[in-house]
Design a protein around this nucleic acid. Structure first.
Lengths: 139, 139
DNA sequence: GTACTTGCAAAATATTTGCGTTTAT
DNA sequence: ATAAACGCAAATATTTTGCAAGTAC
């Protein structure tokens, strides 16, 4: 794993630092769509001296490199997702939980996007569903 | 127009105030996806004493009533859209412009959403495309 | 008359920046 | 050796909140 992270950083031409190695290791295995602060707190457990600015800077770098998706939800925070293959997010407006879904009929959808693409250079897309999740519906 | 706005507020059971009338009038005719501050500045031209807190509170109310869509883009601001019929947004990561598109194959897409709907109560959805717009591509 | 709305100022949140020091290559 | 990255603290940006005064109904 350790080696993997280092190689991964090298492949992406990112200078290797202990901070980046740790952030990347935690974030690549986290499919819970953590916010920057949640990542900071988790990183801090293992590296108490780390600054939140470093976390923000690293996340920005990873997003620019296409390693992470930055997602904007109505809670006003940015959330990060290591699963960069296009998929769909369900956002529970009650508990603020984020749940992944695969996109069905992806070919049709992407064909449609390609049509727009003639005029617009589309780099990525996001589909977000808003509603009340199974668990919150109970109450 | 004036009458329309008043009736519209009454229909939606919103207490009529000069502030709300003006905000609604400006925002219902604005398809440029303005941010809260942009709306505030526009409203202020006609009503200089208005507070930005009133604008935020009114926009929140209008969103809750389903009159406006609140959209989250990577610029960290909320943008408001009076066109509440599901459609698609293109966000230019260069100039930060937001452009509307209609959704093709909407039936297929909504059928897919209905499938999820069995377990999740979906109230609305957003599709955002990110890229470089025609104008920015020139340079 | 009463509950709701407003304006103001302060607070809360999230993110970014400047800068001197440290570190990776 | 040098450019990049770090930690810290301050700054910025956006949105929210508490409250006294005003207003809609």
């Amino acid at each position: 794993m350790e080696k993997n992270i280092i190689n991964f950083l090298k492949e992406n031409k990112i200078k290797i630092t202990p901070q980046r190695r740790l952030i990347l290791e935690l974030v690549l295995n986290d499919r819970t769509h953590p916010s920057a602060e949640e990542i900071y707190l988790k990183v801090k457990e293992k590296m108490p001296e780390i600054s939140i600015a470093t976390v923000y800077q690293t996340l920005e770098l990873l997003e620019k490199k296409g390693i992470l998706l930055k997602l904007d939800f109505p809670d006003g925070k940015s959330h990060y997702d290591p699963y960069t293959i296009p998929h769909l997010h369900f956002y529970c407006t009650n508990c603020k939980n984020i749940i992944d879904f695969e996109i069905e009929d992806k070919e049709i959808f992407e064909k449609f996007i390609k049509k727009i693409d003639k005029n617009f250079e589309i780099k990525k897309y996001a589909i977000i569903l808003y509603g009340i999740c199974k668990n919150c519906k109970k109450f």
